[in-house]
Amino acid sequence: MSAILEAQNLVKSYPEVIAVDGIGFAVEAGSCYGLLGPNGAGKTTTMEMLEGVIQPDSGKILYQGKAVGVSFKHDIGIQFQSTSLLDYQTVIEALTMFAAMYEKTANLQELIELCHLQEFINRDTRKLSGGQRQRLLLAIALVNDPTLIFLDEPTTGLDPQSRRNFWHLIESIKLAGKTIILTTHYMEEAYRLCDYISIVDKGKIIIEGNPDALLKQHFAPTVIRLPQAAILNPVNLSEDIILLDGLYELFTDDVSASIARLESQGVGLDDCQISAPTLEDLFLKLTGHALRT
C-alpha cells in the first residue's frame, strides 16, 4: 500500500518552546495511524500542520505523493480537540451548513444514522451532552465523505461508556476504507483503534510501529503487579522485580512459574494484578515518566 500522507521533518517553534522538532512519518491508505503522547508533546501542533491550519517552520507534507494543493481541503475531514459551533443552530442545521461548504457530500441521512444523531437532530447544539457533541463533530468531519480524516483527541472528556461507543463509530469508519490519523493520550484507545502508532514526547517521535509488535519487542507477554505492602522483605527479591509508583512489577513469559516463585519467597498474592503490558508501560520504559500527566 502506498502512503496517502507523508510528513517529512516537520518543525514548529514558538517563542519559548520548540513544539515539533523534526517529526516525520508516513500513513498508509486505509489505515488508522495514531499519535500517542502526553499533553504538550506536540501531537496537536503536528496535526494542525498536517491539516493545513498552521504552517510549519520547515519540513514537507505530501498528500498522495505531491505537495498539498487546493483539493486537499475537499478530501479531508477534521474533528478538532475543541471546537465551538455557531450559536442558535440545531444539529441538522449545523450539519447542513457544513455540508454546503463542499462540492461533494455524504448522504446526510446515512451520516445521521451512522453517528446516532436521530434522537437529538433538532436540538440546539449548545444543549448537547459531551458524547452527543462529539458524535455531531464527527459527523461534521465526515460530511464531505472524506478520504482522510483527522481526529484530534476525539474522546477527551467523555465518560467510559461514551468513549467506547465512539470507538465503535471509528471502527465503522475504518471498515468503510477511510484513512484515519488520530491523536490521543489514552493508551487503550490507541491500542484498540490504531494499526500503527508513533509515540511523541517533547516534540519528537521516540518510537513507531504496530502496537502489538512494539509491545512484543520490548516486554514479555505478561506483567504481574503487586502492592508494595505485599512484599515484607524486599532484599530477597530477584532483580527482575522493580518498584514503580508504589507497585512491584514483574514481566514474565511464564505466569505459573513466576507465581510459584513469588509464593516460595513468602510474597502475599491476594492483591496481585496480572495483565498484558500496555503502551503506557512502553512509554514509561522509553521516557522514564508516565504517559498521563
Binding site: V53, F80, T83, S84, L86, M101
Partner: peptide, 16 residues
C-alpha cells in the same frame, strides 16, 4: 468571538 472559541478555525478547515 468566533476566533477565540474556535469557530473560525473550524471554518478554516473547510474550503471556505
Amino acid at each position: 468571538r468566533y476566533r477565540k472559541n474556535g469557530v473560525l478555525r473550524r471554518l478554516q478547515a473547510t474550503p471556505l
